[in-house]
Computed example of a mutant assay.
Amino acid sequence: MIPRRVKMAVAAVGGVVAIVVALYAIGVIGVPTATVADPGDWESVDENETEVVTTVTVNNPNPLGIGLGRAVVVDYDLQLNNVVVAEGRTTNLSAPPGESTATVRTDIQNAKLAPWWRSFVRENETVRIGVDATVEIDAGISAEQSVSFGPRVELDNRTPVIDGLSRAANRTEGTYGVNTPTGTVGYEIERAWATWGPVNESRTTVRYHYVIRNPNRVPIPAVPDGFSVELIANDVGLLQGDASAISPRTVGRDETIPPRETQTVVFDVAMDNDRIDDWFRSHVRRDELTTMESRMRLLFEVAGRQIRVPQDGPSTYACDVQTAILVDNETSDTTCASTVGGTE
């Protein structure tokens, strides 16, 4: 049997709720409203998380405030290339009488950056940005408002990452040779460029295309014996590969180029992309600016002699990339010169 005091308390609470609903109905008490002011801003960045903050504005037309708990609930998510990289719910907001603002904090989930990178590369380095936020007020009468920002598109028709890698390959073009007991033996690299190959959440493949002429009287190896490529982004080794990562596509690993003939040699270089989150944090710290440097070098062995391409050290190419995902008063741009690179 329920005690009489409990029955009285329940009845009293029910009566208060009924009165509140009635006051809303006749217009004595207004329904609070809320909105999200902007898509968000970057806040603190450390080794474990990248924080996003956004501002919620609540207008409470009543003389009494709305209490803590689930009275004001905010759901927020940030999508990059249709991958939700940050999402969260804030429930500890209050709304005093009049207009007030509150800050909602959400963290970038590092585990989601690799799936985003995969989509970024597959979409030819286009950045698609979307923000969804929902504010729910429960103060006797519930009110809800949903706000979306975007989708916005950045770096459309620009491919700065593969362009940087491709430019480094361009700079290996030229004539290279060494002296041997039977005369000079060498390579003529007529053209060189890079495109994206397959990419998944753990590995990124860069596809290198080399048009090589054999000016000699003897065959020469088509595939380099040594190879190094590196993409440094804000001092972070974003992509790195060596000869062990090479997979020839158009020739066998031991195939040669006949004398006086020209051949297009295509080979894939698979590189781990386990430092995407390190680079992304550095990009945010610099107000979404990245300085990239691509480095590349090949090594061929002919008649027991080594031919280094380039001879004096790796070919290098440096350029900048600016985005404006959550940076105010900025536009996306790049100084990376366009090449024939892209996604195959």
Rank of each mutant, 00 (worst) to 15 (best):
M1C: 10
M1Q: 14
R4H: 07
M8H: 14
M8R: 15
V10Q: 06
A11P: 04
A12D: 12
V13K: 04
G14D: 10
V16E: 01
G27F: 05
P32G: 00
T35F: 04
V36H: 06
D38W: 04
P39C: 10
D41L: 08
E49N: 08
V53I: 11
V53M: 05
V53N: 10
T54V: 07
N60R: 12
N60Q: 10
N60E: 01
P61L: 07
G65T: 01
G65D: 08
G67Y: 08
R70L: 12
R70I: 09
R70M: 12
A71C: 06
V73P: 03
V74E: 13
Y76P: 09
L78N: 09
V83D: 04
G88N: 02
P97F: 01
I108C: 04
Q109Y: 06
N110V: 00
W117N: 01
V121E: 13
I129F: 12
V131Q: 12
V131H: 12
A133G: 11
I137G: 00
A139F: 11
S146C: 07
S146M: 07
R152N: 05
V153R: 06
L155M: 08
R158K: 15
T159E: 06
D163W: 09
A169D: 15
E173V: 08
T175K: 15
V178G: 14
V178P: 03
T180C: 04
G183V: 05
E188L: 05
E190K: 15
R191T: 11
W193N: 14
W196S: 03
P198C: 05
R203W: 09
V206H: 02
Y210S: 00
V211E: 14
A222Q: 12
D225V: 02
G226M: 13
G226E: 11
G226W: 15
V229Y: 01
L231R: 14
L231M: 11
N234M: 11
V236M: 06
G237F: 07
L239N: 09
D242M: 11
R249I: 06
T250V: 08
V251Q: 13
G252D: 15
V266F: 04
A270Q: 13
N273E: 06
R275I: 05
D277R: 02
F280L: 03
E288R: 05
R295K: 10
L298D: 14
A303Y: 04
V309L: 14
Q311T: 03
Q311R: 13
G313W: 11
S315A: 14
A318P: 06
C319M: 03
T323Y: 07
N329A: 07
T334H: 09
T335M: 13
C336K: 11
A337Q: 13
T343D: 15
